[in-house]
């Protein structure tokens, strides 16, 4: 078991130094106190009912020493912690800005060229990135353990977080602030690319559907566009209705209306999810207008049709 996750941002190593500093001080005190407890309990155990004990009520030097030493140590820890915190909170001026919106229960990322992704944050290696974050509904918290960064997303205001990824690879994004039913499913990935690959990705027109068959593209979109967070494909009920056998299913809506699920119902449910909610489910799905293209909707519908 490793005490710390991999250090994959420029600040992570410095945070780890603080953690190790406090760990060592804590271990010294822990071992010292535990040793005294055990030694005293054995050495001074009651041997007879007439044991003589000294009438010792205080000792000024000792009391001064054991007040001053911890006081100095905690002040050193405080200062060390806040110096690193200062750098953790202050983004460099040349940082690349990416907008982040948290919603129950997905992450949406917007780049300055209009590109947007769900649950996948692509960033270049070695370049500082500043996230400008807000929430659409309740509190969320953006947390990447490997970067040692965390910041709450608050509806109605912007909060900020920055990091510089120093390793290529994929790292988990957790939502750390409780946000309701599917809080633990509000996961994403930071994908750290080389600067060249990042530029290529950023300027590319992502066309999943090109070439691939629609069902396969839909299967990929199911994960990529975060449907997977709320809709199962094995028939088990989650926050939303399962996709298994959804096409052609008879459903009762919240207002009592009976409908048959067809292409138009599915399309409308993706773009205006509150319009026709199936009975027994909360009207909480965010709209994917502007996030999922028409072609992608077609692919998703094809995928749903294949889930019999």
């Amino acid at each position: 078991m490793n005490w710390l996750p991999e250090a994959a941002s420029s600040i992570a190593g410095r945070v780890d130094n603080v953690i190790w500093f406090v760990t060592i001080i804590s271990l010294v005190f822990f071992v010292f106190i535990t040793a005294l407890l055990v030694v005293f309990a054995i050495k001074y155990r009651r041997r007879s009912e007439d044991d003589e004990t000294p009438y010792q009520v205080s000792h000024h030097t000792l009391e001064v020493v054991w007040t001053i030493i911890p006081s100095i140590l905690v002040m050193v820890i405080f200062v060390y912690g806040f110096v690193v915190f200062e750098d953790l909170r202050t983004p460099p001026k040349d940082a690349m800005e990416i907008n982040v919106t948290g919603k129950q229960w997905l992450w949406q990322f917007h780049y300055d060229n209009g590109k947007s992704t769900i649950n996948e944050l692509f960033v270049p290696e070695g370049r500082p990135v500043k996230l400008v974050m807000t929430s659409d509904d309740v509190l969320h918290s953006f947390f990447v353990p490997e970067f040692r960064v965390k910041q709450d997303l608050v509806p109605g205001m912007y909060t900020y977080l920055w990091f510089k990824a120093i390793k290529k690879g994929e790292f988990n994004i957790f939502c750390a602030e409780y946000c309701g039913t599917n809080h633990s499913g509000m996961l994403g990935k930071v994908k750290v690319l080389s600067p060249a690959d990042f530029e290529k990705w950023k300027t590319s027109k992502e066309e999943l559907i090109a070439g691939a068959n629609l069902v396969e593209a839909g299967a990929e979109l199911y994960t990529k566009r975060a449907c997977i967070g709320c809709h199962s494909i094995d028939g088990s009920p989650m926050v939303g209705p399962t996709f298994k056998g959804i096409f052609g299913r008879q459903e009762t809506l919240a207002d009592g209306q009976e409908i048959t699920v067809d292409e138009n119902y599915l399309r409308k449910s993706i773009y205006e999810p509150q319009a026709q909610v199936v009975k027994g489910y909360q009207p909480i799905m965010p709209s994917f207008k502007g996030i999922i293209s028409d072609n992608e909707v077609s692919a998703l519908i094809a995928y749903m049709k294949s889930l019999k």
Partner: peptide, 26 residues
């Protein structure tokens, strides 16, 4: 005394700003 020592020492981690950011809500 044993448990509370652990409680107090782990409190040092959480009170330290730079470490708190990583450990908060975990």
């Amino acid at each position: 005394l044993f448990l509370f020592t652990i409680a107090g020492l782990t409190g040092l981690f959480l009170g330290t700003l730079a470490i708190n950011v990583h450990l908060h809500d975990t």
